[in-house]
Structure formats: C-alpha cells, structure tokens
Write a protein that binds this DNA or RNA. Sequence first.
DNA 1: GATAGTCCCTCACGCCGCGTGAGGGTCAAC
DNA 2: GTTGACCCTCACGCGGCGTGAGGGACTATC
Lengths: 257, 257
Amino acid sequence: MKMLTVNEVAKLSGVSVRALHHYDDIGLLKPASIGRNRYRYYGQDELLRLQQILLHRELDIPLSEIGAILDAPKFDRLETLHKQRDRLAKEAKRYARLVRTIDRTIASLNGDDAMKNAELYKGFSAEKQAGYEKWLIDTYGGDMDKHVEISRKAYAALSAAEKARLQDELQEVETAWAEAMKNGVSADSKALDPLLARHRAWVAVMWDRPCPPEAYAGLADLHLGHPDFVKRYETIAPGFSDFHAASMKAYAKRLAG
Amino acid sequence: MKMLTVNEVAKLSGVSVRALHHYDDIGLLKPASIGRNRYRYYGQDELLRLQQILLHRELDIPLSEIGAILDAPKFDRLETLHKQRDRLAKEAKRYARLVRTIDRTIASLNGDDAMKNAELYKGFSAEKQAGYEKWLIDTYGGDMDKHVEISRKAYAALSAAEKARLQDELQEVETAWAEAMKNGVSADSKALDPLLARHRAWVAVMWDRPCPPEAYAGLADLHLGHPDFVKRYETIAPGFSDFHAASMKAYAKRLAG
DNA sequence: GATAGTCCCTCACGCCGCGTGAGGGTCAAC
DNA sequence: GTTGACCCTCACGCGGCGTGAGGGACTATC
C-alpha cells in the first residue's frame, strides 16, 4: 500500500503542510501511521477523509464541527446538510442584500432613489408619464390610458413579499447581464437569451400585459433616450446602457425573425 | 451638548462595550473627550462615525481598512464602494453555488441524479412511458411516438456541459420558487411569472417542442399524480409539490386567458 | 454619611485556523 | 560524505473581539 508524506498529500489536495499538522494536532485527520522518524504517513482512507473535510470547510463549517459531522452516522449527515443549506442560503441572501444596499447607496449618491427606480421601469413616474404615454401612443396608437391605469393598480395590489421578489428578480438579471458584458459576451450573442427572456417576462409583469418583440425593442430605444435610464445603467457598469439596449434589440430581432 | 458613556452608545448602536474599547485602542473610534475619571464620552460626530463603521463592518471589511476608508476623501469612497460591490457580488455567487452543490448532493442522496431528473421531466422513464403516452394521447390524440423519439434523440445530442447547464437552470428555478413559497407569495401571484416563464421554457427544451398552456397545466396534474414527482418536490420543501402544481396551473390560466 | 448597586476603568488571556519562522533531524542521490 | 530537499517540534502572531479579574466612580436610598 502506497503511503504518502505530508508534502505529497499537500500537493494532491491543495492544502498546506501546516494545515495537515494542525488537523493532526486537533485530531481531525490523523495519519494512517507514524514512522520511527516521526514522519506522518497517509493512506487512501485519509485522502478520502481529507476530501470530505475540505468540502465541509468550503461551507465555512468550524473544524470541530466537521469532525463531529464526519464521525456521526450517515443518516445524521443528511439533516446536517439541510441545515447547512439553509445557513448558506441565508448567507447568500445576506450578501445579495448587501450588494443591493450598496447599489442603492451608489444610486442615491447619484441622486436616484429606489422608488424612482420602480417608477422608472413602470414608466409612470409623475413627471415622465406624459412623455412616456406620448411615446406609447405614437408607437402603438390607440388608447393607452386604460393600460396605464390597469398596470398601476396591478402593481399596487402586489404584496410586499411579491414586490421584493420582483425587485430581486430584476437585480439578479441586471447583475448577470452586466457580468456577461464584463466577460466579453457580445450584445447579440444567443448566450444572453435566457437572461433576456427573464427580463422580458419581468417587463411584462410590470406592465401587466404581454411585451411583444417590437415593444421590447422600442423599450430599448426609450431607455437610450431617457437620461434617467442611462444613468441607472451606467451606475451598474460603465457602458452598460448601450450594451443593455443593443442586446434587447438583438433579442427582439431574433424573436421576430 | 449631550455626551454619552460607553454603555449608552453600546445600547444605541448595538455594538458591545468591549468593541468600543477595542475601537478606541486601535484608533478607529476615539471618544470625543475623556473625563478625569478616565471615562470615555462620545458625542454626535462619534455616533455618526460609528454608524459608518458598522455599515462597513457588515461588508466584512477589516477594521484597519475601514479606518483608512473613513479618513479618505469622499470621491475615493465611491470607488471603494464599487470595489466592495464586486467583491460582495462574488461572495454572493460563491454561496449561491455552494447552495446548488448541496442541493445536488441532497438530491443525489435521494437517488435523484441528473439523468433521472431529465427522464422524469421528459416523462420517458421506462416504467412510466406507457402511462404518460397514454395520457398524452388521450389528451391530444394523434401520433405521439414521433415526438417521443425526437425528444429522446434531441436530449441525447446535448453535450455534457449543456446537460449540466440545464440541470442548473432547473435547480435555480426550483430553489427560487420554493423560496417564494416560504416567503408567503401566493401560488397564483403574478410575481411568479418570470420564474414560471423560465420553467416553461425549460420544459419546452426538455420536450424539444413548444409547451402550450394546456400542456403546461396538464403537466401540473401529471406531477401531482406521480409519487416520484411529489417526493422530489417535497424534498425541496414541505408543501412544495402542491404549491408547484397550483402555480403552474394558475400561470397556464393567465397565459390562456 | 454609610451602604448597595450599577456603572466605569485597565490589564490580560482565550478563541480559530492556520502562516511563518527558528532550530534541528532524516532521506535520497551523487 | 556532502548536498539539498524534505521532515519534525515548538512557539509566536493575526483579527476582532468575549470574558473574566481586580479595583475605582457614580447615584440612590436609608
């Protein structure tokens, strides 16, 4: 049976030699055997246990608990896993919330608050409503007033949890979208389709009516033409307002074609 | 001017007295004045600075850096804020990824692996194929064999990466979906529309053909009738199988209406 | 003005998960 | 037998406090 020294284990697993010493000290991972020269030797079982340790360490579980978990019977582990999942989900949300807080702070430094954002998207900010309706009527003709009224009522009727959910959804989409841009994805790439589908669905919910491709493309132009939108997107990432509009239009074209 | 003692500041801010001592020691937050009795006295300015400190501490910024940030000119802070935002966004993603990993682990412990999921959802698991086809034929009449064959081939043609991506997508949707339920969003809420749109799109990909509203609603019933599905959803969260089906049906109704 | 109770202070050690030496043995290869 | 790469065992340090210990200071009540 091949035995491994600390250095070899370290290189295999990516953990430091000192960490192995430490795990030995605290009894988390004992070597399979110790030579008369006091060298630590690890076997296959120890490597497997180490994998488990590292996996749990990734989850920010204290080493003492990891030991307890690994030494516990298997059916307990599933429960532990569920608990960890919830804890991590909370952490993930906490961070997401912090990101939003920062975003709002940045936005408010730019003289832009959350309420205004919701209104922006709905297109019903008191000051802008006139201009927006004009645009809608110019574009689609007909009686938009009814739509506007319906939409406003529908949004007001949502519960706080639902509004929060929608807010989260938009945040998520925009973040991933800007991320894609930063990663060099081109605006007309099909890789953006899932994101754009989500965005379009989101817009449809805000409008409380379907968002046909032409309307979606029109929305892109609308954004470009409104300094408020441009500012909002540039705050997310420089260059994002153009990218945002370009990808919306490309997507609308794909939908129509 | 009202001066506050450590205890008062502690109660106001939620920080411990010891922490205030510590902040004094490291020079992060010095009291406005110190009495002859060596008591620390804090004023309004210190409270404001403390707020800032706590805000940054929430972001897991080391105290030494917080000091540097707060003592830096304001225009530098915006940049710092942007950097922190990116860092936190990465953390949030890391946690989200971990949650997904755990979800997959839990799922696989339940004997619920990717392949099986795909089969389940496609409704072509060998044992169930007969019953499912019967249902499809009853409902839509006509020649389903062709569809079945096409779908199976299409899925087989996907690369491993694409399959993994689909798996992740489903995982993401289901997690957010269950989350919404836990937060008290009602099954027929429009706030779920973006999620349901994603889900329906996902189903369409699995089927390799569009998923009309009636078929989507039918799928909900199919799920309720199949213990495998029910078990799968109940594993995600108790009560989720019903919520899942109910929201699918409500969504389908909205689509049709 | 004594007493009690609640505040305040200053040390100083402890926790976790190692990093980073110092000081000294051990191994394989030439 | 020498070199160089490993191995070992201490032992201190970091960050952000928690948690006493031991002792003054303030306030209210008798």
